[in-house]
Structure formats: structure tokens, C-alpha cells
Design a binder for these strands. Structure first.
Lengths: 167, 167
DNA sequence: AATTTTGTTCAATTTTATTTGAACTCAAAT
DNA sequence: ATTTGAGTTCAAATAAAATTGAACAAAATT
């Protein structure tokens, strides 16, 4: 008989609640739910887990587990545990908020900010080539200036954020 | 002849670039692209705009424009301009970073944090009812404690963020 | 060297989120 | 009182994102 209930086979109530906590958590950050499930399961597990554990305990596909672990490692949220067992790699969570925040900012936030800066410099070029003092050009210059201030605020804020959340 | 090109009818290159800037911008925040288009168009317009302007200039439906403006007003990013003209309401953007950040935090961030706290208090209840000193229960208690620290960090950080970005 | 098992990749599928458009309400104008 | 048109609503359509699963590669085991 197939698993028709939503309940994850093999997860205790406590584990389920933790996994659900992280599911919601990663959603705020714009990451897929499976990422939250995987990290959540690692977070609540005293021992490192292998890919197959995610597949069986979370009822997700091997592909999802593989891609999920890859992203989490890129974010620095998960690392490979020492020593393979029976050909398998085992993973453990990084639970330092500092590291998690840092990785997220580096991988997910900074690239976006950078592409914003690129667009902004195109805009700067555009207003520069609007010569003269016409009302509209002036208005545009003010707006671009404002965007520039926003952008530098954002850049300044990130290190502070990291410091505040770090330790 | 239908508009087969991607170009927005009636938008200058400059306007298009600004709109695109905000499209990307709101994506980081997890808001739909149309929200960025609408806010972007307002941001680049010297005069307030009516619903119909969004429909024609951005080639979006009346429904999208209506819903988009509603969300932006809820976020405090857009407000109704004084004085209707010919039955129409006109809207203007709020361009204070402080206000924008504040509204986003209040409407989009805090509710998520709150639901996280709820889940967390369920977890606290669960570990409390795990009596004894068994190894696993201890481990769980530590994890829940850690989640608690994360959560309070997050709550503390928001006001600081607002102060840093404000003014 | 053949087999077995882990893990990756990516096109196809499923799921979720966004957008549309037609029916509707309401208020202003005639 | 009727008409006109702005704006809303929401079920359906569409678009975007996440997930699956089967084919594959790599590496250990027999």
C-alpha cells in the first residue's frame, strides 16, 4: 500500500516538526522546500546522514537529494563528514548562524546586488548622455542618484548584518 | 498587428531600464515581477499614474495592475495621490528607503518570523515532555535552544536593519 | 573484467505561483 | 433612473519553479 498520508515514514513527531520549521524557514529565503527538509533532517540528527537517508526518510527522489545536498554545500550549510562508510558519503550540518548567514549572503545576495549595480551603471550612462537642464532629464538624474544611494546602503549593511548575526 | 517584440509599447529606453532594475529588485524579495514593473514605472514617472497607465504602458491586465497596486499600498510603497481626475485614482511611489524597508519587514518578514516562533514553542513543549537525561533528548534540547537563539537574533536584528537603512 | 552500488545529470513531469479576462460592484455623470 | 466607466474579484489559463526518474558515470567489490 502506498503512502497516502502526508506523514514522513520513519520520522518522529519531533523530527517532523523540526523539518517543517526549516521548510518554512528556507521559503522566506526563496529556497525550495526540499532544501529545508534536507537541512532540517540533518539538523535534528545526532549522526551524519547519507544521500539514501534523505531519500527514504523524506520520501524525496535521489535526484532531489543530490541537488539539494549540492546547493547546501555551496552555501556552506552542510559539509561532508570524515570517513566514508561502505562507499557512502555522509553529511553533517553547519549550525553556526554566522556561517549560514555568511554563505547565504555570499551565494544568494551578493550576486543579485552585483547585477543591480551593473544595471545601475547603465542607467548612469544613460542620464549622463542626456545633456542640458531640461526638467525631465533633471528628474531622471535625481532618481538615478537615489538608486545609487540605495545600492550603497545595501552594500554597507551586509557586513553589519553579518557581524550582528555572527558569533 | 500584435506586439510581437518584447519591448514595452510607449516606454523609452530609460524607462525600460528602470523598470527592469526593479523587476530584478523585487525578485530578490520574493515578489512577483509585475510588482517590480509597476513600482518601477511609478518611480521613473514625474507625475502620478492611474491604473490604466500600467495596463497600457506595461501591457499587463487590469487585474494584475489592480492587485499589484493593492499589494504595493499594503507595503506602504505606493500611495494614492491627492485629487482624482475624471473618476480615476492616481498613485505615486514612496521613495524613502526607510519606509520601503519598514513596510517590507512589517508585512513580509515579521509574519514569517512569528509563525517560526509558533513552531518553535511547539518544539519547546515537545522537548520539555521528554523527561530524563537520555542522550537523544539532551541532544534535542540543545538543538531547540539553538533555534531559540537564532530566533531572538533575528528579532533583534530587524530594528537595527531599519535604523541602518533608514533616513 | 564483470558486477554492484553510489551519486550525477537533465529532459520530462508535476507542482506552485502568477497572470489573465470576464463578470461584477460601485460611484459618478447624464 | 439610467448609463458610463473605474476598479475589484476570482476561477481558469499560463508561466515559472521544483521534483522526478531513468540513463549515465565513476569507483569499489567480487
Amino acid at each position: 500500500m502506498a503512502d497516502l498520508s502526508g506523514k514522513k515514514i520513519g520520522l518522529s513527531d519531533f523530527e517532523t516538526q523540526v523539518v517543517s520549521f526549516f521548510c518554512d524557514g528556507v521559503r522566506i529565503l526563496g529556497l525550495p522546500k526540499s532544501i529545508g527538509e534536507i537541512y532540517g533532517l540533518l539538523f535534528v540528527s545526532p549522526e551524519p546522514l547519507a544521500l539514501d537517508d534523505f531519500v527514504t526518510k523524506l520520501n524525496i527522489s535521489k535526484g532531489s537529494a543530490s541537488q539539494g545536498i549540492r546547493l547546501l554545500r555551496e552555501l556552506g550549510a552542510v559539509s561532508e563528514a570524515e570517513g566514508k562508510v561502505a562507499r557512502r558519503s555522509y553529511y553533517e550540518p553547519d549550525i553556526e548562524l554566522k556561517k549560514l548567514v555568511g554563505g547565504f549572503i555570499k551565494e544568494q545576495v551578493r550576486p543579485h546586488l552585483a547585477s543591480g549595480e551593473d544595471k545601475l551603471s547603465v542607467l548612469r550612462g544613460m542620464v549622463k548622455s542626456m545633456e542640458g537642464e531640461e526638467e525631465l532629464a533633471d528628474f531622471y538624474r535625481q532618481r538615478v542618484e537615489r538608486l545609487g544611494r540605495w545600492s550603497s546602503r545595501a552594500r554597507m549593511v551586509l557586513p553589519v548584518l553579518q557581524k550582528l548575526l555572527g558569533k
